[in-house]
Design a protein around this nucleic acid. Structure first.
Length: 585
RNA sequence: ACGCCUGUAGCUCAGGGGAUAGAGCAACGGACUUCUAAUCCGUGGGUCGUAGGUUCGAAUCCUACCAGGCGUGCCA
């Protein structure tokens, strides 16, 4: 009874924007199994898996769980089940293999649905509506004013930026906030250092490096003279109290730094919806503290104002120091409440290093104690530290590697390789930047964010294997082929794409939407990074196995359509990572 | 001392409780008169930190231990 009408319905469901291709096939498997197994829909869906080997089909259902109830061996159950299943247009074969039932997607149909969907939706392919009408706040990058942008800050920046784009693809409205570290005791330190050793001329000519120098010097001198720390704290207190000299210096340091940061963000193609940093909340802090006190949560301890968290098994959260000055936690608490009021977020992500895990657990605990149900919508998205082979990277000790140096060297290397491989390339400089910077970003995103990274120049400057240039190269190759096929009018019959190599590529394309969802909901851009590498690898295998331009008529058209679809998904995937896709390299 | 995180091939890492644990790099051997060789194919290489437990089935879940990293009230 599998009529043409039924097929049309399936096709139209899949063709609908925002639907997941593989999901439709998956639901069909469940529909087929449901009448024959004593399991809930949910349970079947959970048990369903992707076979380790494409020769074993596209979906597999393990029969172990049925063995107990049916009192039969799993392979026997599988065999009998297969015999009783209804046929489906969506699958060309359903076979029992040992204890598994393997479902083989109808290759022609999968190829058609996938390629047609990609080529009609183009840049929107993969987008979903899960988050429609909801806001999500993403707090990322947050560099400290008056310190250079080091490779350490790159992590928060690129992870946050990628999450921003991933959640946008799920239909959320994203609000990217750069919670600048533009307040705090560090400014007391900087003011002290500047007043003691400052040189106006050097501040003018090379602000960031000079401020950094002062900062490092402060810490060196403070080792010998603890009195300096005392002075710094008192200058910060003055700053909070509105002392004019302090505010003027702070204002200068801040605006000089911000100009510098924006330059870096431009290089990275990163933007923010708000630059409201810590100082932004300065006027609201008293109110926040009053709110905490109102709920009877604040208490005095050793001269400081704290929220006791012993019930939660955590050390107390400090809101005011002995001298009355506020802390990081006070400002974060204030910011969270402000953002909830302003954005009414469905979720708020803090893309901040794992070394601050306790701080966020405390922050969320205080919000919960205050009775805010939305505290559970706040998520700390932690990531590992960048370290040297021989120890921790430290701003204070001045052992920082500047991001700009890294980007610069990567770009130079890319330029050198272009000179070797493709000296005729027209816009060499631009492409070298796209490739070099892409390599650096990808290097940071490709591994699980929780792992520490050991900084290694050799690794940063290696463009072979699982890297952005690898993916970009596959993309450029496709563009090259498509340029040579300018005669192709764009018509095709994708159902001709049935070889193993073609199907492997199609299968990857069909999994794109699922990958976006998984990358976003696990807050792991690395999932998307792995995907684009896998897709590029699958394309490369196809490329070496199947001629495109020299293929015969209809097959040539079908393959052109296939690689055009790959090109599109590579562009979309790289975009989600914040990486450019040059058409030639 | 306590808490959190990590431990998979020589190195860097993937592995959505299930079929023979996979990539890249490095090593070695192949493939450019043919769509860009920043590519592809092949070979070698593993007590999945250790010991228990749960399960029909554990790299994956639980417990203990070991090793490393980070954190533990007036920095952020």
């Amino acid at each position: 009874m599998q009529s043409a009408l039924y097929l049309d319905i399936i096709m139209s469901i899949i063709a609908e924007r925002g639907s997941c291709l593989m999901q439709t096939f998956r639901e069909e498997v469940i529909r087929l199994l449901l009448p024959h197994v004593p399991l809930e829909e949910q349970q079947i869906s959970e048990d369903l898996e992707t076979p380790p080997n494409p020769a074993l089909g596209d979906f597999a259902f393990p029969c172990f769980k049925l063995a107990k109830e049916k009192r039969q061996a799993p392979p026997k159950i599988a065999a009998e089940l297969v015999a009783s299943l209804a046929g489906s247009e969506l699958f060309e074969r359903v076979e029992a293999k040992g204890p598994y039932i393997n479902f083989y997607c109808n290759r022609k149909m999968l190829a058609r649905l996938t390629v047609e969907k990609v080529l009609s939706e183009k840049g929107a392919y993969g987008q979903q509506q899960i988050g429609a009408g909801q806001n999500i706040v993403i707090d990322f990058s947050a560099p400290n004013i008056a310190k250079p942008f080091g490779v350490g800050h790159l992590r928060s920046t690129v992870i946050g930026h990628s999450l921003y784009r991933l959640y946008e693809a799920l239909g959320y409205r994203c609000i990217g906030i750069n919670h600048l570290g533009d307040w705090g005791t560090q400014f007391g330190k900087l003011i002290v250092a500047y007043l003691k050793w400052g040189n106006e001329e050097r501040l003018q000519t090379d602000p960031i490096n000079y401020l950094y120098e002062l900062y490092v010097r402060f810490h060196q001198e403070a080792e010998l003279d603890p009195q300096l720390d005392e002075e710094a704290r008192s200058w910060f207190k003055k700053l909070e109290d509105g002392d004019q000299q302090a505010r003027e210096l702070w204002q200068r340091f801040r605006s000089l730094s911000l100009t510098e940061f924006k330059r870096i963000y431009q290089i990275l193609d990163v933007e923010f919806d708000s630059y409201s940093g810590e100082s932004f909340y300065n006027e609201m802090l008293d109110e926040t503290i009053a709110l905490v006190a109102e709920k009877d949560l604040a208490s005095e301890s050793e001269g400081a104002l704290v929220v006791d968290l012993s019930e939660e098994g955590m050390p107390p959260c400090l809101l005011r120091k002995q001298d009355g000055a506020t802390l990081y936690a006070t400002r974060d608490l204030c910011a969270a409440i402000y953002r909830q009021q302003k954005y009414n977020f469905a979720q708020m992500l803090y893309v901040v290093g794992a070394d601050q895990a306790l701080h966020f657990r405390q922050l969320f605990a205080v919000l919960r104690k205050m009775g805010y149900a939305w505290a559970d919508k706040c998520v700390h998205v932690p990531f590992g530290l960048i370290r040297y082979k021989d120890g921790k990277m430290s701003t204070r000790q001045g052992t920082l590697i500047f991001l700009e140096d890294v980007l610069q060297r990567a770009t130079e290397l890319a330029a050198k390789i272009i000179e070797e491989k493709n000296p005729g390339l027209v816009n060499k400089g631009e492409v070298a930047r796209q490739v070099g910077i892409g390599a650096v970003i990808f290097g940071d995103l490709s591994n699980d964010r929780i792992k520490n990274i050991e900084f290694d120049w050799d690794k940063v400057l290696d463009f072979s294997g699982e890297t952005a240039p690898y993916v970009q190269y596959a993309h450029a190759r496709i563009c090259s082929i498509l340029r040579k096929a300018a005669d192709w009018p764009g018509d095709y019959d994708a159902s001709l794409l049935t070889t193993d190599e073609e199907q492997a590529v199609v299968g990857m394309l069909a999994r794109f939407a699922d990958t976006i969802k998984r990358a976003a909901t696990t807050y792991k851009p690395s999932v998307m990074a792995r995907y684009v590498v896998d897709l590029a690898a699958e394309f490369n295998r196809f490329y070496h196995q199947c001629p495109v331009l020299t293929a015969e008529g209809p097959l040539r058209n079908a393959r052109l359509a296939l690689i055009d679809a790959v090109r599109q998904v590579l562009v979309n995937g790289l975009y989600l990572l914040g990486i450019a896709a040059p058409e030639e390299m």
